[in-house]
Structure formats: C-alpha cells, structure tokens
Nucleic acid binder design. Structure first.
Length: 276
DNA sequence: CTGACTTAC
DNA sequence: GTAAGTCAG
C-alpha cells in the first residue's frame, strides 16, 4: 500500500476512535430510563418506594428540589448552594473515559437562580463538586451535568483534594464492592461565618456524606461528618450516626424509607460492616 | 483523582 | 466562548 493510503486509514481510525469515545458508556436511552425512574420525576412522588428499594430522597428544608438526569438536589437560595445532592452510583457507572472538564454554569432549573461562577473566582476556594464528576463519567452528558453551580460548594483546596477526595474514592470503591450505593452529600449550612462573592455563597464549616448499601442483603448505612479542613486522619474517625446528622443538618434523610428499616439503620454509628 | 491557571485562536 | 497545555495537592 502507498503511504497516502496508510495515512487515510489512520485518519479514519482516529475519527472512529474519537466517535467511539464520545458515545461510549451507557447509551442515552437506558441512562435516562435508569436514573429518571430511580429518583422519580417530581417531589410529590417522593413518598413512593420502588420495589428495588430506590428513591431514597431526603426531605427539603427549602422547598426547592430539582431533578437532573444524573442527580437530584435541594437548593438553598440563602446559601447559594445545595443543602443536599443525592444520586445512585451504580457499579457500571464507574467505567468511563477522561473527558475534558467543561466550564461551570448556572443551573437554569433553579428558579431563584443558582450562584454565578464568578463568586468563586479569586475567592481562594475551590468549586468543590458535591456529586463528583468522576461518579458521572459513564457519558459525556452526565459528566458535564455535574459542572453546574448548584452542584458545588466552596471548599478549601487542601480539603477538597485531600480527605474529601479520599472519601469520594472510597465511595466509588464501595459502589464497586457492594454493587451500587446511594449517596447523599452536602455542606452543613448552619452557623456560617464566611461567604464569598457578591451573592455571598456560604462557606460550610463541615461537610457530610451518607452512603447507603441497599443491594447486598441487609441494608446498611454509613455517615460521615468532616470538618472543613485538611486531615490525615483515617476516614472512619469521622463516622457519625444518621440520627445525629439529621439533628445537625435539620434534614430528614430517609423519610421515604420503611420506618422499620429507617429506624434500624439510622441509629448505627458503627463502620465495622464496611470495607475500608 | 481533586482543582486552578495561562496562552492561543 | 472553545481548546489545549501546564502546574499543584
């Protein structure tokens, strides 16, 4: 074959590979069906419990619950961020491609308007993902969707890239190990001392994360409450009960769950059942 | 992985 | 605004 032919074939291969990477992951149809059904279409359906045990949305203290395709959130306008972000992390979600990070955008679904990214500019704080970008890498659409300011809290870089990052990686490990987990996460929006930007985005003093394993036999839950500062301590040092987290945050986390199950798992503060 | 920043078009 | 490359925890 002549050189020119080789180059042509090579170019075609590159284009094909690019297209493949672009569309790789769960295809759009099943992606939408899976995620949308899991979390329901609107707030009024939150008291429904699906047979597969999904749909564990927390209560909203702000009355503004928003459902995106890849996650749901409750937006607190006074704090210009979500009080919680909830999503289901499937085992299959984990395989993915490295997408280029897009720019953060405002969330049009937030009626009152979510924070502008300029609030974070030169603030010294990271735009810290609540639903991590790495948890939505199964499609470019899902990945991009995490770059909304409604999915972001001001975080110190040392914290975000440190212990918080460690926790997020642990959640992905659990999702793989336990065949999928439910995640609820956010900052504690109480006793705010520091705000950033013109819109006064609140800087939480603590961040929490709740992980629910509803797939491997007996449901089990683990909750973390971590001070907004870098720490070298092991993650299990920050385990708390869901009950205490509900008191601190004012949010009812598993209100749609069977009371029996809810009462059984929420009081637990033990982490021995979880692999670290 | 988690990010910000700079430079080019 | 988009794209690509660099740098840092």
């Amino acid at each position: 074959m002549r050189k020119k032919t080789w180059y042509t074939l090579l170019a075609l291969l590159v284009v094909a590979a690019g297209y493949w990477l672009e569309t790789k992951g769960v295809d759009r149809e099943s992606y939408l069906e899976q995620l949308h059904v899991d979390w329901g279409g609107n707030t009024s359906k939150n008291d429904t419990i699906y047979q597969d045990g999904s749909h564990f949305l927390p209560s909203s203290t702000t009355g503004q619950i928003i459902h995106h395709k890849g996650y749901s959130l409750s937006y607190s306008e006074p704090h210009e961020q979500a009080e919680w972000v909830a999503y289901k992390l499937e085992k299959e979600h984990l395989s993915g491609v490295d997408y280029k990070r897009p720019y953060f955008e405002m969330d049009d679904a937030v009626i009152s308007g979510s924070a502008h990214w300029r609030n974070y500019k030169d603030s010294g704080y990271d735009r810290g993902h609540l639903c991590p970008a790495a948890d939505r890498k199964f499609s470019k659409e899902a990945f991009t969707e995490t770059f909304l300011t409604s999915n972001v809290s001001p975080q110190e870089h040392q914290f975000n890239s440190g212990i918080w990052n460690r926790l997020e990686q642990k959640v992905r490990f659990w999702a793989s190990r336990y065949d999928g987990v439910y995640v609820v996460t956010g900052g504690i929006l109480k006793e705010i001392d520091i705000t950033i930007g013109e819109e006064q985005v609140a800087v939480p003093k603590q961040f929490y994360k709740i992980v629910l394993d509803y797939n491997s036999g007996n449901p089990k839950v683990i909750a973390f409450l971590i001070p907004h500062e870098e720490s070298d301590k092991p993650l299990y040092d920050f385990v708390v009960s869901v009950d205490s987290l509900e008191v601190i945050s004012g949010i009812d986390f598993f209100s749609s769950m069977d009371d029996d199950v809810e009462n059984r798992i929420e009081a637990f503060e033990k982490w021995e059942n979880w692999h670290f």
